[in-house]
């Protein structure tokens, strides 16, 4: 073992090798075409979020499979509220709101790709408002449902699933609000709008989760 063999590349003097110029500029990092770092990062993060909700859904189906009948019929005074199938209308309206918001969000993305800043801001603005409306609607729903998180496994799974989805909607609204704010400050253009794309991906994901939730809780 040659203790002090030196690299063929640098002088080997630790104090000296620090570059004076930008050491990175000459290297072609970060330029391997295709998808940008933030967007790839967001896609990967969404993968992890999918697994998170898979965990919750798995719990839901496991609990549901071991409870007959489903929804539970006891205790009777609370259980009468469990029948979400017969009253899916309010949730259906929420679903429509969220789906529409996904569309407006995408319109916003397309707009900024065309450098149409007004269209971008208008659409993202509408998306944020729809997201807030959804959250208010969900809060109202919670207040009127007639059962709580501790009321049998039905209540527990219902509030956990919808609650965590709600938290994600809230996260998405915050994200899009930041995008809106930065958009108003003129920070995005057709060449530079990774944050917009990334946030919209997240928003679509939140939307898809809700559709899965709605189908599971209200239809299945």
């Amino acid at each position: 073992m040659s203790g002090s063999s030196q690299s063929v590349l640098t002088t080997g003097d630790p104090g000296h090798a620090v570059a004076e110029h930008n050491p990175v500029a000459g290297l072609a990092h970060d330029s391997r075409g295709g998808i940008s770092n933030p967007i790839l990062g967001m896609l990967l993060f969404i993968c992890s979020e999918i697994m998170f909700f898979s965990g919750l859904f798995a719990a839901y189906f496991s609990v549901r499979a071991s409870t007959t009948p489903w929804p539970p019929v006891e205790p009777a005074d609370i259980a009468e509220h469990f029948n979400l199938h017969s009253e899916p209308w309010f949730a259906a309206i929420l679903t429509v709101i969220l789906v529409v918001s996904s569309v407006t969000c995408q319109l916003g993305v397309w707009a900024i790709r065309r450098d149409d800043r007004t269209g971008f801001i208008r659409n993202i603005g509408v998306t944020v408002v729809l997201g807030i409306v959804f959250l208010i609607g969900q809060a109202y729903d919670y207040a009127t449902l007639g059962f709580g998180i501790g009321d049998t496994t039905f209540g527990t799974t219902f509030y956990t699933l919808t609650g965590f989805h709600g938290a994600h909607v809230f996260g998405g609204v915050v994200m899009l609000s930041v995008v809106l704010y930065r958009g108003l400050a003129g920070q995005f253009s057709s060449r530079h709008h990774d944050a917009v794309e990334a946030s919209s991906l997240y928003w679509h994901f939140v939307d898809v989760v809700w559709i899965a939730l709605f189908s599971t809780l209200y239809i299945l």
């Binding site: 990967l44 992890s48 999918i50 697994m51 998170f52 898979s54 965990g55 919750l56 719990a59």
Partner: peptide, 9 residues
């Protein structure tokens, strides 16, 4: 990425 979120849940 695939496993940790599950234990978080």
């Amino acid at each position: 990425l695939m496993a940790t979120p599950v234990i978080t849940s």
